[in-house]
Amino acid sequence: MNQQEIARKKRVMHVGIWLILICVCVILYSLHTGSIRLSPYEVLRTLVGLGSEDDSLVLFEYRLPRIVITILAGMGLGISGAILQGLYRNSLADPGVLGLHAGAAFGLVVFVSFFRSLEGMISLVLPLFTFAGAVLVAVLIVLLAYDRHKGVLPIRLILVGIALAAGFSAITLFLSLRLDEGTYAFAARWLAGNVWGREWANVLALLPWIVLLVPYTWLQSKVLDALMLGDEVATGIGAPVQRKRFLLMGTAVALASVSVSMAGGVGFIGLAAPHLARRLVGPLHQYMLPIAGMIGVVILVAADTIGRSIFQPNAIPAGVVVAAVGAPYFLYLLAKTK
């Protein structure tokens, strides 16, 4: 192990520890804000099981599931963005570009057009619809971008993604204009990226995907590194390009669509988290992926907290907060780099 690599490992450790600390702080802060305020001391006491009954109800039944969902979704979006940027060799790719948000939104609007009500047990089916919508778009994209001789072409993937996103947005718009105002307001909130899942059942729906796919992605970091160098080089150093790309693509789609189905159409995390991670620890996926995931967590949890604590009574969706903070930062990056 040479000098350089040790230095890099050290840097990754530093960044990682700092990010974990920030994560913990943000999560604790998020636990204590909301329409019922709990002091940090009460939060801690309740967490270890000594709080009053009301406090534990608020914390365990309302706030904690929501925060766990935000954490999982933030991580999913960040890592999905990192995979896509690696696959496309394009640092501007994110799940929104692939039309996944449009598909999920389509699923949502179909759901509310059919059931009209979001009360009770039926609301638990909603993630299935958004997930199905996103997968539908993903499958269509891959089918349409598939070439018999060359496999899936990255550039065509982007073109097809844009077109399908526009098409599905149009259908969504068509359906949503026929909704009554109250239902539409819910749909609009969701589209703007409102963390929607609030129950432990939703956490259970999300958890297995993240727990399985995130480590899988991390194990594939060498392949992602190789793919970043270009298909020819990747083939040359012995990576099965087409098969791996297909698998990783599926992973990215699954991560993004489960996250989006719970957290709403949050943009920018998939774009910004890998960017930031790359700036902090360099382009090697082995280091960059976990950092990107953690940055995703910090961004989404912070944005959700800000959205629901500052703007009362009409909480602003996390997606709006993310864009309001993320876009200027991104523009600043753009202005600074040559």
Binding site: S176, L177, L179, E181, Y184, A185, A188, R189, L191, A192, G193, G267, F311, N314, I316, P317, G319, V320, V322, A323, A324, A327, P328
Partner: peptide
């Protein structure tokens, strides 16, 4: 950015539709 600010405004003032 502008799109998401617009939808933020629309949601806050309840005029999304």
């Amino acid at each position: 950015l502008l799109h998401s600010l617009s939808s933020g405004i629309a949601i806050y003032f309840e005029l999304s539709q």
